[in-house]
Design a binder for these strands. Structure first.
Length: 315
DNA sequence: AAACAGGCCTAAA
DNA sequence: TTTAGGCCTGTT
């Protein structure tokens, strides 16, 4: 019986602190960062690696590269990886087990096929507040514009934004080209209090449109404690959803995305237009997401990727 | 030009 | 309780 432990080591790439993680399985950097769950990452097109995505998460600009089964993280250390990024990247989870669990609960042919095609996607452990705002912004909107709006919000709230790029220039080669001309790409996501201070009018000026008052309401609820985000980690998914739906502009879809991507509720099964199509096409009417168990949200992401990103390709 | 984009709110049956 | 319009803005 071979028990392969993946080695995690620090190294230097020029002046950049980096970490190499060997033998990761069921982790595909491109799919994970390009499947629409996060809005602050973009590809590093001139990368020295097979695939590399960089972006700002949990207050820090980081780059994640992949060569085969090896993962390379730039601008971090093993110490920080163990503390922060391991969980963020969901590398503390056994996806083989998760997949088997899903398969044990459903024999749907299309789900099986979706899992094969989308395999390697991991549900990131993003910041809950940022997720909430991001998915409020996402409604009736497209991904490029969602990304722009979020970056502009970060830019607006960041008094040091002029300096950020200069501070990051040392990691040139591991910065997404897109970010070099995107205002706010290197700015951290603002706190609820900060967004609240901005106010609905300023949000409108920033072109959030009808979503301005929704963001404002979310910031109000969270910053004043009408909703305690810390409660959302432990309570049941359905209860959490109902809590989040008290915010104006937050419905079931936004709430469940927030819980799935921002609060670790892997059973949350958000239904958007794509998933609605999937359910109509491949499942019978008796389908309910709790049939898929504790990891229904992972299955949802496989199905979403399958339908949204593989359309036109061979399924 | 008109329709659409990873929804939700509101008004009307 | 369910259902159709309308919504900011930008892109095609």
């Amino acid at each position: 019986m071979v028990c392969e432990k993946n080695s995690v080591v620090d190294f230097k790439s020029g002046n950049i602190c980096a970490v190499k993680i060997e033998n990761t399985e069921l982790f595909d950097v491109r799919k994970t960062f390009d499947c629409g769950q996060c809005f602050r990452f973009d590809e590093v097109c001139d990368s020295i690696h097979e695939v590399e995505y960089a972006g700002l998460a949990l207050g820090k600009y980081i780059s994640i590269a992949q060569d085969g089964n090896n993962i390379i993280l730039y601008n971090t250390t093993v110490r920080e990886y163990e503390k922060v990024w391991k969980k963020y990247l969901c590398l503390d989870m056994d996806y083989k087990k998760i997949n088997n669990n899903i398969l044990s609960l459903s024999d749907n042919k299309n789900l099986l096929s979706a899992m094969e095609k989308a395999s390697g996607i991991r549900i990131l452990g993003q910041d809950g507040w940022e997720c909430l705002c991001s998915f409020i912004v996402s409604q009736n909107n497209n991904i490029p514009r969602i990304k722009k709006l979020i970056a502009s919000l970060c830019s607006e709230c960041d008094s040091d934004r002029e300096d950020r790029f200069r501070l990051l220039e040392f990691m040139d080669g591991h910065i997404s080209e897109v970010h070099k001309t995107l205002p706010g790409a290197f700015s951290p996501f603002p706190s609820p209090e900060h967004v609240r201070r901005l106010g609905q009018n300023r949000l409108s000026e920033l072109k959030f449109g009808f979503r301005s008052k929704y963001i404002d309401c979310a910031a109000d609820f969270v910053s004043t404690g009408k909703i305690n985000l810390n409660d959302l980690y432990s309570k049941k998914t359905l209860d959490c959803m109902n809590t989040l739906c008290e915010i104006k502009g937050v419905g079931p879809k936004v709430a469940l995305c927030t819980l799935l991507f921002g609060f670790g509720h892997l059973d949350a099964f958000p239904v958007d237009v794509w998933i609605k199509r999937v359910l109509e096409k491949y499942f019978d009417k008796s389908f309910s997401s709790d049939m898929l168990g504790d990891y229904a949200g992972v299955a949802q992401q496989y199905l979403f990727y399958y339908e949204r990103y593989l359309d036109g390709e061979e399924k």
